[in-house]
Nucleic acid binder design. Sequence first.
DNA 1: CGCATAGTTGACTACGCTCAACCCTGGTGG
DNA 2: CCACCAGGGTTGAGCGTAGTCAACTATGCG
Lengths: 199, 199
Amino acid sequence: MNFFTLEQLRSQLQDAIAYQDLEAGQILFHQGDLTRAMFAVESGQIRLASYTKNGQAINHYIVRLGESFAEAALFQTVYDCVAIAVIPSRVAIFPKQPLLEALRQQPSLSEAFMAQLASRFHQTKILLELRSIRSARDRVLRYLQLTAQPDQKTVNLEYPLKDIAEDLGITPEALSRALAKLESEGAIARTKRRITLCE
Amino acid sequence: MNFFTLEQLRSQLQDAIAYQDLEAGQILFHQGDLTRAMFAVESGQIRLASYTKNGQAINHYIVRLGESFAEAALFQTVYDCVAIAVIPSRVAIFPKQPLLEALRQQPSLSEAFMAQLASRFHQTKILLELRSIRSARDRVLRYLQLTAQPDQKTVNLEYPLKDIAEDLGITPEALSRALAKLESEGAIARTKRRITLCE
DNA sequence: CGCATAGTTGACTACGCTCAACCCTGGTGG
DNA sequence: CCACCAGGGTTGAGCGTAGTCAACTATGCG
């Protein structure tokens, strides 16, 4: 969810919105807790993880500044993952009932919300398809093509390569090697914090 | 999108809905076509794929009976993937404008639609997290845990293992081996078209 | 009955993970 | 201003696991 829609929600809900500060490692909600709100990251990072019943197998997704999360919780009774602050963070709390009420009353707001949801759904599907590319080299190349601005051919590295590797589902070492390979092949060129696609 | 919401949409839109039959390999829409509708599979299977500009690197997702697709298209101007029938198929066409209009007019319909979107978004995120499990054995086990009915401990195999392997992002051979391994470990038991989780 | 496809098993290969050492940068404090 | 340190990034060596290719069996359908 981008800033725009979040701002719309803010102006609609106003005093219904609360804020909460979290220390590093603090848990915002547990798996199985009754859903009470949707959230947005004001600062910091929140990790979403889900645990199996037997093992403690962890699955995670990092929510970053300006992103909302737990939208699906609006339509479910319990959270199906845990939310933990990885660093000291601040979240905005959009309580479930007022939010649903606002969406019901304002078709335009509802439409914007839906558009955001659809867009993020689509983004996630793209990430999923990215994972089906086996070769690290090809996967990285595809990632760069996807994240480059449509007209431009450059990618600005906003996060550490470490985090990008995480998103890609490979190790930092593999990413480093893949980039080196692509560069040696002449497929990309690298400068400080920027990668440009060639040809 | 499940049948329920689709039925709601059907009864609302009625004569606005058209149907189209596709032969195997026939293309429903191209990447870059102007969006004109959302679709649902009445019979057959539709493959969604996206192509890079240079290579013909393919990414795909198979839409099966009863599922809708291209929901995000409602809020975008062009399709960002191609839709191809893998076998002879029939799709229902929900034209964009009438659908958006219906959602605007009927908050309850809009809410159901949103709930479905959120649910599928969440499902996709789970699949994504599944892909970050390296080990085939662990990934398969997790998949079984996720797809088993919450109370039950059995998984009915509705699709060929081949397709499940596809969803899991591994080869059929690897899936076969993983299942054999899990069975020999006593973690699962297999019967005809059913797998039960042990302990 | 025969064919096509799914599923299984085996042998080999290759690619990415692991562990480790090293370089480089930026930040901090003496 | 320099010394030190921490973290990100790169590179190397070895290993393990899933992919690939292939043969074979089982199943379902005409």
